[in-house]
Design a protein around this nucleic acid. Structure first.
Lengths: 324, 324
DNA sequence: CCGTTTTCCGCTCATATGAGCAACTTAGCA
DNA sequence: TGCTAAGTTGCTCATATGAGCGGAAAACGG
């Protein structure tokens, strides 16, 4: 039947002693000295029993996170890429739209928690950030600055896309703070137009505030159709040329290669947006991006060192770890 | 959707910080000072985060006992009745025979663990103890003493019942130690016969060793048909008379009332068995008994203060706690 | 706006704790 | 039997830890 007991395999008395002590220590929070006296053994023995019980798996610690987060993956991604924190959503096979919604909701909760009255919030114009707006219910009173112009060619199947520049306004409304929107297109035909637009009163006001931003929310785009705000507004020729030059990711209309280096001085890619230097200056940059297909783009952006907090999903997180 | 965040309800960043710290501390065993330095916070904050995470249920400690035991019930029963330990088998609705088999197997494991070469083992003759023999695979070399005579009227549907006095012999064989069986009936017609039998060479040898026994295994019987070795060999009149006098439990042919007091000097109840005083002198008495219907009998015996270790099942344990 | 209450945080100091060590026991083997 | 190797136990001492305190900041009420 049960076979002969193997050496080192503890009997029921030892097992129950270990669970009793474990309960006293881990659940009820008693001190080891106290437990030692109760059980009539030395405190060293208590310590050894506890260590062994933990190492052997008899005592297991579980985390009941009251949010759809994967704490283990979050830890691993954050430490693998040197981030301040990572928020990895639980796996849930769903459409891109649903995923964006969930990422947005999580980012909204995070923002509500992090932002104080002393902060200045910067927002990129992107679908996931717009989705965040929908879930945002409370925010400390603070200025809200738009970090880049808007793209009109974006997929409009989603309700939030209709509101275009209203994102910043809406966040400011929830917050009660001042809004600094950028009324202008994200990608411009030439450098001169970009310069002219930047001198427009409203836009200039926003750009002046980039240096004061304490927390920014950006979206990570992949250099593929439907995966980037910029990609969608360029011509096929430009898309291919940039891809040849190594573009795999996009944040605030800035492109990155797989190593996280910015692709600078691209011809025909003049944008109305904060520079990478502007973004790197911001103490807390929250980047949103999920889906297994976006993992390479996310990895590239993380390697740029720009991101402090990543909000992603389990599918992308696992791919990130695989290539870390 | 998600509603406004309530006060005191932590955001995702705080949640992940708490799980990260919890993993570092509880799983990886890092010190709080170490964690504080890693996260750039004071060690007091680490302690407070951990306390709060534990109290709020974010961090949950589980016990994976590699045996069919209920550690919580075991703890509770042991502390409610002042036992050294209790082994409560997991609930598993089964027949009495199966239950006895499982109790016996658990007792066998316990005995294997507890007995050393310096011990002297005492065994009662009862079905559960016989069942233990079947599962006993290893035992330190030690003398094995039979604590009472045998009953021939016991239910013989079980294989182990056939072996009658062979139980002690078999245990001694597994152990490699000397056997001291009691070849004689448990219940005798009168005092004189009992005295005569006790002077028989083999029986006297066993009785002389009662005082040296360090560990005994006894079975708890209820004063009902089929629930006690003694009950089965008495006539209906005697059974009823003893029940009127308060008998609810039986151990080694000694009867107890609900308060754990022995029913002494019963007419027509002369037995070939260790006395209650003999049993109370033994440093480690392991009592076996299970099934919800036996709970009252078990409680009675525990109240006698005779038992150090109880081996029972969840059904009985819960009833024991209800009346503790 | 000011005063009060509440909450949060990090300090001091007495206590609890763990690493490492040495004495001891047990197991294995010739 | 005697020997060595492996394991177990409790001690010392430097370090880690928690209770309780007080000061600072936030929240509240007038």
């Amino acid at each position: 039947m049960s076979g002969k007991r193997r050496r080192g395999d503890p009997g029921p008395a030892e097992l129950l002693l270990a669970t009793s002590i474990g309960r006293r220590f881990y659940v009820q929070g008693a001190s080891k000295l106290e437990i030692a006296e109760e059980f009539g053994i030395s405190r060293f023995k208590v310590a050894r029993i506890l260590d062994q019980a933990r190492d052997s798996g008899l005592i297991r610690v579980e985390f009941d996170v009251p949010a759809p987060l994967e704490p283990t993956l979050s830890d691993e991604v954050a430490s693998a890429y040197g981030l301040r924190r990572a928020l990895v959503l639980e796996r849930a096979d769903r459409t891109e739209i649903e995923l964006r919604k969930r990422l947005g909701a999580m980012a909204a909760d995070l923002l509500t928690e992090l932002i104080t009255e002393d902060d200045v919030l910067g927002l990129v114009w992107a679908r996931t950030v717009n989705a965040m707006t929908d879930s945002l219910r409370g925010l400390a009173r603070c200025p809200v600055v738009q970090l880049c112009g808007v793209s009109s060619r974006i997929d409009t199947r989603e309700h939030s896309a209709d509101r275009s520049v209203e994102t910043v306004r809406r966040v400011a409304a929830v917050s009660g703070g001042e809004a600094f929107p950028v009324f202008g297109p994200l990608v411009l035909p030439d450098h001169r137009t970009a310069q002219t637009l930047r001198q427009q009163p409203g836009i200039a006001e926003a750009f002046e505030r980039f240096a004061k931003i304490t927390t920014a929310v950006v979206s990570i785009g992949a250099w593929r159709s439907g995966q980037s705000t910029v990609y969608s507004v360029l011509g096929q020729q430009q898309r291919e040329e940039l891809a040849r030059k190594g573009a795999v990711a996009e944040v605030a209309a800035r492109l990155f290669d797989a190593d996280g280096n910015e692709l600078v001085g691209e011809p025909g890619h003049h944008v109305l947006a904060a520079s990478v230097a502007d973004l790197k200056r911001i103490p807390e940059v929250i980047a949103l991006g999920g889906g297994a297909g976006k993992a390479d783009a996310i990895a590239a952006v993380l390697r740029s060192g720009m991101v402090d907090t990543l909000v992603t999903d389990a599918g992308a997180a696992e791919r990130l770890l695989a290539q870390a």
